[in-house]
């Protein structure tokens, strides 16, 4: 059954991919990209990667689509036909694809437990996590504790992207409430948005603090938190959303999150451990791990949420 779902989902992904190539209307392409992301999120659930699925659904199908739609609104919707014949690109793609498929023939079979990728580090993480970290979700323990340096780097990348979009698009405060003319008439949407707004924020907090025990964590929570405000801004206009959460506050919060993360690392040094060693944060190493993971996930969540909103505000405040 699992294999059947896998085959069908991959087939649908392929069809969506080809449709994206063929479509000329960029609005339709943006929506198809959202479907593509949602399909791959479903595939990740089948492949046991629940944390990844949650992230892909929130980011790929949610925020990416909104950014693409915002860009399409700022550019022209129709795609012009290319001037060159597509023969050369087609040849390049075919040759590259054939070479890659030849390369896969040496790979271990799908689902093979003896594949080299499952030896060494991965089995050690699975074996040591209950005793050393004490959290059931191994993805969280690897992300936040064993490979905490990497994650600090990722958070800095997110922060840099926010700074980059801010530098490129700037930010214009608008007196006028930027909103599509038709939205004001959609009473159902406005009522539902108002009802869902607190629930989305609550769910984000659940995903943040339950990330040790179930799928979730700072990245997903930050994105879901930002989605709540984006939904609010879509239904009630950017001006109203800015009154709820100010742009200068977002810029400060984006930095605060990274600083919380780094501060937890430095606190470890001050208490006599290594950078990002959580065991020394409390008397009992496992309690220290819990505390450290909680704090850095909080930092990740704050930065991700703030940067997502900075990016969204940047794109939407560009609309005339």
């Amino acid at each position: 059954m699992e294999h059947l779902i896998d085959i069908v989902l991959l087939g649908l992904l392929m069809i969506t991919g080809f449709a994206i190539v063929r479509m000329k209307s960029l609005l339709a392409v943006a929506m198809l990209t959202s479907i593509y992301s949602l399909l791959s999120a479903s595939l990740f659930v089948v492949l046991d990667a629940v944390d990844v699925a949650l992230t892909e659904a929130a980011i790929g199908a949610g925020i990416s689509t909104i950014l693409m739609l915002a860009t399409v609104a700022l550019t022209r919707d129709e795609e012009k036909a290319p001037r060159h014949t597509p023969l050369l690109p087609l040849a390049v793609v075919t040759v590259t694809g054939a070479a890659l498929i030849y390369g896969t023939l040496d790979m271990p079979h799908y689902g093979d437990p003896a594949a080299p990728v499952h030896q060494h580090a991965a089995s050690a993480y699975l074996h040591d996590t209950p005793g050393e970290i004490g959290v059931p979700n191994v993805v969280t323990s690897v992300l936040a504790s064993y490979r905490g340096y990497d994650t600090l780097g990722e958070v800095t990348v997110i922060f840099t992207a926010g700074a980059g979009v801010l530098a490129l698009l700037g930010y214009r405060t608008r007196r006028r409430n930027i909103q599509g003319p038709g939205i004001r008439k959609l009473v159902v949407l406005r009522v539902i948005a108002k009802l869902f707004f607190p629930l989305i924020l609550l769910f984000a907090l659940y995903v943040l603090f339950h990330g040790d025990y179930g799928p979730g964590g700072g990245f997903q929570a930050g994105v879901i938190f930002a989605t709540g405000f984006i939904l609010y801004a879509l239904a009630f206009g950017l001006g109203n959303a800015q009154r709820v959460i100010h742009h200068p506050l977002l810029r400060i919060m984006a930095a605060v999150g990274v600083l919380i993360y780094a501060a937890v690392g430095i606190e470890g040094i001050l208490l006599g451990g290594k950078f990002l060693e959580y065991g020394v944060l409390a008397d009992d190493p496992v309690t220290g791990q819990h505390l450290g993971i909680m704090l850095i996930e909080l930092g990740v969540g704050i930065t991700v949420a703030a940067v997502m909103l900075i990016i969204y505000y940047g794109f939407v405040s560009r609309q005339d």
Binding site: A49, E56, V139, V142, L143, R147, G217
Partner: peptide, 12 residues
């Protein structure tokens, strides 16, 4: 779990 962690951050 290791590829999951790598890809989770890669998505962001």
């Amino acid at each position: 779990p290791l590829p999951h962690v790598l890809i989770l951050t890669a998505i962001v």
